[in-house]
Design a binder for these strands. Structure first.
Length: 205
DNA sequence: CATGGGATTGACT
DNA sequence: GTCAATCCCATGC
């Protein structure tokens, strides 16, 4: 089956990173024949010190300052590859970290790549989901539309997903920002959301 | 050029 | 709950 599905348009990403992070929950991340619904994200922006782009334009952060709608993939703790969606206009360093998926396609290959059976644990973390989907550092700067790596808009029941916000995980700076977003009631999160607050009703315009 | 610190995970006490 | 694995890169001397 050819990989010829719908992708979010580039303009979806050309917006404030916090809005994009919230709106990506319920969308589906595809890589070739594997896919999962995004149930958890975090926003990162050059203006706050938890963001890699905080240090400015360097060899590492170049993609973050590039055009929106591309993937920023980096190595974490020397071991894991973490995938982000670059947002905001070119010249602004910002991206949405994809933290967890609910597997929906290619589950057998995910289990093989992860070496685990539990559906809940296949993509319940940013380092897990890249392994499950076969995403690696070679995907850095790859487009998120029109290619083997893509994100499709909300569909079906996911169009009415309730998105909750809380503090980000695993960081040591800018802890006060509630820039983690998760699908309410999802069993596929990397960790439960604490300090639950509704976010979807904040949607403007 | 040496050093320190991670947007994590899985195994173990 | 604790902890090691592992490596790129930003920083500072």
């Amino acid at each position: 089956m050819p990989d010829r599905g719908v992708s979010l348009p580039r303009r979806f990403y050309d917006r404030p990173v916090v809005e994009v992070a919230r709106d990506l929950v319920g969308c589906t991340l595809h890589h070739r024949s594997a896919a999962g619904v995004i149930v958890e994200t975090e926003a990162y922006h050059e203006s706050e010190p938890a963001c890699h782009a905080y240090v400015g334009l360097t060899p590492r952060t170049g993609v973050l300052f590039g055009p929106p709608g591309r993937a920023y993939v980096y190595r974490s703790y020397g071991i894991h590859a973490l995938v982000n969606a670059v947002t905001e206009p070119e010249g602004v360093g910002a991206a949405v970290l994809i933290r967890a998926l609910e597997p929906v396609a290619g589950i057998a290959e995910m289990r093989a790549r992860r070496g685990r059976e539990s559906l809940r644990e296949l993509c319940s973390g940013p380092g897990k989901l890249t392994v499950a989907l076969g995403i690696g550092l070679g995907h850095n700067d790859a487009p998120l539309s029109g290619g083997p790596l893509r994100i499709a808009p909300r569909a079906g029941a996911w169009r009415e997903v309730e998105v909750l916000a809380g503090p980000r995980i695993g960081i040591t700076r800018a802890l006060e920002l509630r820039w983690r977003f998760a699908a309410a009631g999802s069993r596929f999160l990397s960790r439960p959301l604490r300090g639950v607050a509704r976010s979807e009703p904040l949607r403007r315009r």
